[in-house]
Amino acid sequence: MKIIACVKRVPLTDALVKVSADGASIDPTGLVYSLSFYDDLAVEEALKTKEKLGGEVTVLTLGASDASKELRECLAKGADHATILLDPAWAARDARSTAKALATRILELGAELVFCGRVATDRDQSAVGTMLSSYLGWSCVTDVTKLELTATGGTAERETEAGIETLAFSLPAVITCDKGLNEPRLAGLKGIMAAKKKTIDETKPVDIESAVKVLKVELPAARKAGRIVGQGAAAVPALMDALRNEAKVL
């Protein structure tokens, strides 16, 4: 089975962000990138599926050639191939144009199963995985925390406000991975050595115009300064008074 893990580089979660001079983008200077937290889960699930059902794993990203660092780490963990859909302006692409470019490539690769992260922790849209499934006409299960796959379909669990949902689906499918699904492996020395010899494909994605116009990027207003109402249990009456009379939330 041909399996694809779609991944994205995002700024580290502890990054301090600044707005660019144009007021409509994030200033990239000083930002350190890594794979989005949930994309590591997608890569792990792709590798586990290959180990169970056979096949090969391709990691696919739409980005700049800098992404080869993260893709090589995926190869070191056991992925067979890696492809970058090269777009120097990747950071400005919208979810629609990204999903369409990925879908085109996924069809070219003849894949049957695609894993994505639940969300890329930069735009926080949770949209590319589900959009892919619509463009491909495939099954899709999102935010998966438990997965059982066979060669033709599977069952999955996802967490909702109402409780744990169980779903049944057929292949081909797009699965988006949530925390709890697996524990991503680390690359071993042998894998790291082998990955050095592998090539990372770079191809141009299909060109699709953006359908979102960014007007402004700003930092959220700082919270107004608060205060320490006191020390220990003795401070409880002062806190209650503030909650009741000042904040009016009781």
Binding site: D94, A95, R96, D124, A127, T160
Partner: peptide, 23 residues
Amino acid sequence: ASSAGKDLLGRVAGLLDCAPLAD
């Protein structure tokens, strides 16, 4: 922007070939 809403957004946007805006 609930779990069902988030799950539907990209699917519907894909079917309509539109760009989604989440949350």
